[in-house]
Simulated scan of single mutants.
Amino acid sequence: MSYWHEKVCVVSGGSAGLGLAIGRALAEQGARIVLTARRQELLDAAAAELSRAGGAVSAIAGDMAWQEDVDRVAAEVAQKFGQVDMLCNCAGRSTRGLALDATPEDFQQLLDANFMTTVRATRAFAPLLLASRGHLVNVGSLASKLAPRFTGAYPASKFAVAAYTQQLRLELAEQGLHVMLVCPGPIKRDDNGSRYAAEGANIPAAAHAPGAGAHIKAIDPDWMAARVLKACQRREPELVVPSRVKWLCALSQLWPGWGDRLLRRSTSG
């Protein structure tokens, strides 16, 4: 029997991308899945896909940037299931542009979308997660570790996710909760190469590509989802993909000048 069989797993941002892929992987392993996202029509389509694959899926629309929605979703899950064995915070978005072109309002919007969504959902589901001694998975980015050029306010919002996750890991380990930060490179999407067309007029064309022009192959979301579940089962503290980027992260911390040079060389523009 699968480790995830009958476990209650909540995935925010579950209507597309990596969130949907994680839901798919959980469905294949017999989990009871709760998908949440802002847009009802996309959420319904995602839930129908997982149900056709044999998954037990509940779809609850809600915007994790709004406390009222977060509280409502958490209350509905608690009433229906009485437990949560995994919360995977996938909700968020990225952007392109020069750091100086990003206004304070741009930074606030990205912090709300990428960081405060994680804080709100984590706090709302923490009692159920602690009771189950389950898994809290916060999806960051390679931009949680490195701040490449031409990504606007995005790295600041993802660095915040990394810091918050480390704090939770240190504070909650003795209570048995597994807390993991996931830092993937660019995920393959149908709109890769075009989704930033309206942004960043002042940045090189190559920076509109996945990973802001990083010389990294886009990652298959289903492959990444399988990696996330395996890392959860091993109760790993972090998952960085591709793993070779860890060396650049370490170098950037120890010798920032060398790290900056290598980061410039490993991205286009």
Results as ranks from 00 to 15, higher is better:
Arg93Ala: 14
Ser94Thr: 12
Ser94Arg: 00
Ser94His: 02
Arg96Val: 12
Leu98Asn: 13
Ala99Met: 10
Ala99Ser: 13
Leu100Thr: 08
Asp101Ser: 15
Asp101Ile: 00
Ala102Gly: 11
Ala102Asn: 11
Thr103His: 06
Glu105Asn: 04
Glu105Ile: 02
Asp106Leu: 07
Asp106Glu: 08
Asp106Gln: 07
Phe107Glu: 14
Phe107Gln: 15
Gln108Asn: 06
Gln108Phe: 04
Gln108Val: 05
Gln109Phe: 10
Gln109Ala: 15
Leu110Thr: 03
Leu111Tyr: 12
Asp112Lys: 00
Ala113Pro: 04
Ala113Val: 05
Asn114Cys: 08
Asn114Trp: 09
Phe115Ala: 02
Met116His: 12
Met116Asp: 06
Thr117Tyr: 09
Thr117Leu: 08
Thr117Gly: 06
Thr118Met: 06
Thr118Leu: 14
Val119Cys: 10
Arg120Pro: 00
Arg120Val: 01
Ala121Trp: 04
Arg123Leu: 14
Arg123Lys: 13
Arg123Pro: 02
Ala124His: 08
Phe125Ala: 08
Phe125Cys: 07
Phe125Asn: 03
Pro127Ala: 05
Leu128Ile: 01
Leu130Met: 14
Ser132Cys: 04
Ser132Gln: 13
His135Thr: 04
Val137Ser: 03
Asn138Trp: 03
Asn138Tyr: 05
Val139Thr: 00
Gly140Trp: 13
Gly140Thr: 03
Ser141Gly: 06
Leu142Pro: 02
Leu142Trp: 05
Ala143Ile: 00
Ser144Phe: 12
Lys145Ser: 09
Leu146Thr: 10
Leu146Ser: 11
Pro148Cys: 11
Gly152Arg: 03
Gly152Tyr: 08
Ala153Tyr: 11
Ala153Ile: 03
Tyr154Lys: 01
Tyr154Arg: 01
Pro155Asn: 07
Ala156Gln: 02
Lys158Met: 10
Lys158Trp: 10
Ala160Thr: 11
Ala160Gly: 12
Ala162Gly: 04
Tyr164Ala: 11
Thr165Leu: 09
Thr165Ser: 15
Thr165Gln: 03
Gln167Thr: 11
Gln167Cys: 14
Leu168Ala: 09
Leu170Ile: 01
Leu170Lys: 01
Leu170Asp: 08
Glu171Met: 01
Glu171Cys: 03
Ala173Lys: 04
Ala173Val: 05
Ala173Tyr: 06
Glu174Thr: 07
Glu174Lys: 04
Gly176Ile: 00
Val179Ala: 06
Val179Asp: 09
Leu181Phe: 14
Cys183Lys: 00
Cys183Pro: 01
Pro184Lys: 00
Pro184Phe: 10
Pro184Ile: 01
Gly185Leu: 02
Pro186Gly: 11
Pro186Asn: 08
Pro186Leu: 03
Ile187Met: 15
Lys188Ile: 05
Lys188Ser: 13
Lys188Gly: 03
Arg189His: 08
Arg189Pro: 01
Asp190Pro: 14
